Computed example of a mutant assay.
Amino acid sequence: MTSSRLYLIRHGRTDANVRGALDSVPPGEPLDETGHAQAHALAARLRGAPIRAVYASHAIRAQQTAAPLAAALDLGVLLLDGIHEVFVGDLEGREDRPAREAFEVVYQRFWTGDLGARMPGGESAAELRARFLPAVDKVMDGAEGDVVLVSHGAAIRLAAAALLGDTALTSYVPNTGVVVLRPGGPRWELEHWDPAPRRPRDVTAGGTPA
């Protein structure tokens, strides 16, 4: 198995994040001014890393986040199927309290092991993993150098938990938060997980798929 590391990075901030809107369907909302600044800070942070490929989901916010990093590394941004956010179905586009509470109920069930729990009219954690994990296998197969996937908060957390064998305590991924994993036999190893701010403005207790 490759010894290359996998960077799972959440996109920068969007206006939907600020409003608390559920935004899971590509192309979705673009980065706001703060989000663009976060993307450039990310590029400066990782400029010296031995990254050989930068992938992004089909969401515009993920592509905009990946672009400065790819440019700093003299790489292009490659779009990758399967790493978009968990689909929230009937809750899409809503920012009202009942919608966010409905999302939170299902999201918390994921973390008690109920991977078949489903967003109303949407997707389950098991379905998210069924599309995300093969995408990881595809880009890491034979990789020589580290690989970046710019994705989404809930998707990253669910996929990382699966790669780690559901044995590691995962947490909210902040905007442009970085999770670094390394293949290590039957289970991956957690090398780094960016801490979250104590009271993020754009999420409920579990996190918003946006």
Results as ranks from 00 to 15, higher is better:
R118C: 14
G76M: 01
R187H: 15
G12Q: 07
A125L: 05
P50W: 10
W188M: 04
A196P: 10
S57E: 14
T2W: 07
E127P: 03
G82S: 09
A49Y: 08
D32P: 02
V173T: 14
D15Y: 07
Y172G: 03
L128F: 09
S24C: 12
T34W: 00
H40V: 12
V86L: 10
P50V: 03
V179I: 15
G121M: 06
A125R: 01
L8R: 05
M140Y: 15
G145E: 04
H84Y: 13
D74A: 03
V54H: 09
L22K: 10
A102W: 09
D96N: 07
R100H: 10
Q63M: 07
A39Q: 09
L6K: 03
D146N: 01
F87M: 09
G20E: 05
A67D: 11
L73Q: 07
L69W: 05
D194S: 13
A196K: 04
G28S: 14
P26H: 13
S151Q: 00
V203W: 00
R97L: 11
E29G: 07
R109Y: 11
D23R: 04
R198F: 15
E189M: 06
A43C: 08
P68S: 07
P26K: 11
A49R: 13
V150M: 02
A16D: 15
D90F: 04
F87E: 14
R187Q: 15
E92V: 06
V77A: 05
I156C: 00
T34N: 02
R187W: 15
T176Q: 07
P200H: 03
Y107I: 06
T208W: 05
A160W: 02
A126M: 12
V139E: 15
G20L: 09
I60V: 15
V139Y: 14
S57I: 07
A155H: 00
W111C: 04
E33Y: 03
D32F: 06
L133E: 15
G116K: 04
L22E: 13
I60Y: 13
A44R: 13
Y107D: 08
A159K: 00
A37W: 09
N17V: 11
I9A: 04
G142H: 05
A205I: 08
Y172F: 15
Y55N: 08
V180S: 03
E191I: 11
R19C: 10
V148A: 03
G82R: 06
V150N: 02
T167L: 05
L79C: 09
D114A: 11
T2S: 08
Y7Q: 01
E189C: 06
A154P: 01
G165S: 08
L164I: 00
V18C: 10
H84E: 13
E144P: 01
R10K: 00
V88L: 05
E189R: 12
L149N: 01
H11C: 08
Y172Q: 12
R198S: 12
R45C: 04
Q108L: 10
T176L: 06
D194F: 06
D137T: 15
A102Y: 07
